[in-house]
Nucleic acid binder design. Structure first.
Lengths: 224, 224
DNA sequence: GACCCTACATTGCGGCTACATTACGGAGAG
DNA sequence: CTCTCCGTAATGTAGCCGCAATGTAGGGTC
């Protein structure tokens, strides 16, 4: 199991490398975005651990390039910024998981194994449910090949539900995914988005349903 | 699943309680160390969320006392101080995990579940009885793979009985698991939940039965 | 066995809360 | 200016849940 670690702080890099080696992993460490790009082109890594704060830019910009070169490779973003906005930003950019520093090494290893265990289908960046398809890379939905255009908020709701299809998404998670930190909401705005999205999904015969779990959140599933 | 939250900031406490409640947990909130000690002596909580900055001292001093009273109970320390030094201090004092504010509620819940799973960590966290399966991690029940949806209280009853399958659960234990301190009830509400749960279990042909032990409590077992 | 007391079972009702849906108006883009 | 998006609020609806009334079964005593 060979891992690419993109991290500029030497202390952190050494510690992580040691820990991962202890778990029978082979770690290649690079400190910059440029070197990371070069390393990934060798196409020998099964996963990428990506710090955001790098000397030559935000680690997130690397994600699309990684996706272009090695489509299904799992990416876990590491960051000192634990704010929700950043978390969402990370996942929106196509990362597979996100870990805020400080974190337990055990947790990192656990999540790494989790993303590596995932079936190949999940790693594809085109989610399909019913007649609906969602291109995570371009953030576009389509029904039976026809573009299914949605306003921003509704698209965020749909994407968030799709990323956790068949499993309940907490109402709070949904709010966090749709609204940034300083967007203050004091109404049932989220409900209206869900409602409008529902109508459009049925009108387009997307073949998916949004169920409500009372007191908990929502869940998207294939309709029958 | 009943949790003790030790937190003095009302705003944070309210938010956390609400969030945890959304995950089908029962939360008792106390704002001081003294009250925390008293609450834990009731011995009904399965985990403790402990803030460090409390009006009557550092939350860490509570840990040895908790360990004395409730040996294996998981403790997660919450703190505004996210420095590594503090982290180590927290773990050194015997906490099971450590979370720096601000944190995502989802992450807290995930870690809470992780530490609660730990004793049974080697086993799969999917309890199976008859045709019924209960996913402890996601707090979802299913019958033969089909989702088996239940309201909050009934789910709590089912989970509590499942965790002690084949053994009688005291009526008082069940009440403690389902209701928090201030949820005090004065009727046979618990019985009605058991009744409704029974009906749903038979309707879904779950293959389990809830037996009553007169004057003692209830017991869940495989129905032949 | 007759009787009674108590614990449990079951059901319907009402209040409460969460959710669904619709209409409206403001704000920003073109 | 016009159109779309989106937050707000009002209104309607459904589900949960505590409560109480009524029925049933267990177990004790005589």
């Amino acid at each position: 199991m060979r891992i690419l670690l993109v991290e500029d702080e030497p202390e952190m890099a050494v510690a992580l490398s040691a820990a991962l080696k202890g778990h029978d992993m082979v770690v290649d460490h690079v400190p910059t975005l440029a070197q990371a790009e070069e390393a990934i082109s060798a196409d020998v890594h099964r996963a990428v651990l990506l710090d955001r704060q790098l000397p030559d830019g935000d680690g997130l910009v690397l994600i699309p390039k990684l996706r272009a070169r090695a489509v299904g490779i799992p990416i876990i973003v590491l960051t000192a910024r634990g704010e929700l906005v950043d978390r969402v930003a990370g996942l929106d950019h196509g990362a597979d998981d996100y870990l805020a520093k400080p974190f337990a090494v055990d947790e990192l290893v656990a999540r790494l194994r989790a993303v590596l265990r995932r079936p190949a289908g999940m790693q594809c960046d085109l989610l399909r449910v019913g007649r609906l398809a969602f291109d995570l890379a371009h953030r576009e939905a389509s029904v039976e090949g026809r573009p299914f255009q949605l306003p921003r908020r509704e698209l965020l709701v749909l994407e968030t539900l799709l990323r956790r299809i068949g499993r309940t998404v907490l109402r709070s998670s949904l709010e966090e995914a749709v609204y940034s930190f300083d967007d203050e909401i004091q109404s049932n705005a989220l409900d209206t988005h869900v409602s409008r999205l529902r109508r459009k999904l049925t009108e387009a015969q997307a073949g998916v349903e949004i169920h409500n779990i009372r007191g908990v959140g929502y869940l998207l599933k294939h309709s029958r």
